[in-house]
């Protein structure tokens, strides 16, 4: 029982990171029907930005008090803002001109952008895995029979806060309404006076910000980063988005947490080499039974 709970906590933490990335896939797909394969690399870029900011601030080991709060906040916000801007830039430079091109063109472009980002990161920090400073004090808390570490709490808390505020933003704000309108029918939204370009740019901005937060979180959680991390994590997060029903926000969160937990339990019960097999086997089964994903409905509302 104790081990079951410990593995559950591991799975939820891992799932939190997947969920943060999965939201980016699902939002972009919902609004422009593009699978943005570069998104996983924006996430890795987030951990690179956090690492660069922490290094510039001179943070190499565990921090305390106000220094901790300031450094962590700067690193987190810096990574989120930079990744958001990168997301907007990618959309402006690579995808906007292809918006009315056949669907394969932007898809291939996305793969190309992914390679460009990977190679930029390789040129920037080299191709070896990088140690990430262990800035967060890491006491463990006893939650009943299971101990939860500070890092795990931070991962899950940040993921939940980001997702809930995003959900509120999309369902309540005027921009959120515009996003939903563009997702439903771009032409009609344009006719109603909605600035489609701006709305799509904001979508990429939000996706980038969440990826940046995910990058920071993964750096803190694993104390390491690597320029190719985004490939594997991006693939899993994309799977999470499909599992939950691509285009559906709560679906992406559910998918992310499910995949984290499945992976963790598969490693525990079947061994590490079977974790990926299990995840994708379950994806296949779910898609056979429910082709539109767990929460995907055949409605036209996609964001």
């Amino acid at each position: 029982m104790h081990e079951f709970l410990a593995q559950l906590v591991n799975g939820i933490s891992l799932g939190g990171i997947y969920a943060l990335i999965a939201i980016g896939y699902t939002m972009v797909y919902g609004i422009v029907e593009l699978i943005n394969f570069a998104h996983g690399d924006v996430y890795t870029l987030g951990s690179f930005f956090s690492l660069a900011i922490l290094t510039a601030l001179g943070a190499t080991g565990e921090l305390h008090g106000s220094v901790l709060v300031i450094d962590v906040a700067l690193s987190l916000v810096g990574a989120a803002v930079c990744c958001g801007l990168i997301g907007v830039l990618i959309e402006r430079l690579a995808y906007r001109r292809l918006r009315n091109a056949p669907r394969l063109a932007p898809l291939i472009t996305a793969i190309g952008v992914s390679f460009i980002l990977e190679n930029v990161m390789q040129a920037w920090k080299g191709s070896a895995p990088l140690p990430f400073p262990d800035v967060l004090p890491n006491p463990t808390f006893a939650l009943g029979p299971v101990s939860v570490s500070m890092q795990q709490l931070v991962v899950v808390a940040l993921a939940l806060v980001a997702m809930v505020s995003l959900q509120i933003f999309v369902s309540r704000s005027k921009t959120g309404k515009a996003m939903r309108a563009v997702a439903q029918d771009r032409q009609a939204a344009l006719l109603m006076g909605i600035d489609v370009n701006r709305t799509i740019a904001i979508t990429f901005l939000i996706a980038g910000v969440l990826a940046g937060i995910g990058g920071f979180v993964s750096g803190v959680y694993y104390q390491s980063t690597w320029f190719l991390n985004g490939f594997g994590a991006g693939l899993k997060a994309f799977t999470a988005a499909v599992l939950g029903g691509i285009g559906n926000l709560p679906g992406a969160m559910l998918g992310g947490f499910s995949i984290g937990i499945i992976e963790s339990f598969a490693t525990w019960k079947l061994g590490g080499q079977w974790s990926n097999v299990t995840v994708f086997a379950i994806l296949v089964i779910v898609l056979i039974v429910r082709p539109s994903g767990l929460l995907g409905r055949r409605t036209q509302e996609k964001v």
């Binding site: 591991n10 891992l14 694993y222 690597w226 490939f231 594997g232 061994g271």
Partner: peptide, 20 residues
């Protein structure tokens, strides 16, 4: 004796199992 998959970043589940 466990084998790991290529490009894995998260070993916490495996190590939790080993710790037990």
């Amino acid at each position: 004796h466990d084998h790991i998959a290529k490009n894995t970043q998260d070993f916490k589940s495996l190590l939790t199992k080993i710790a037990a």
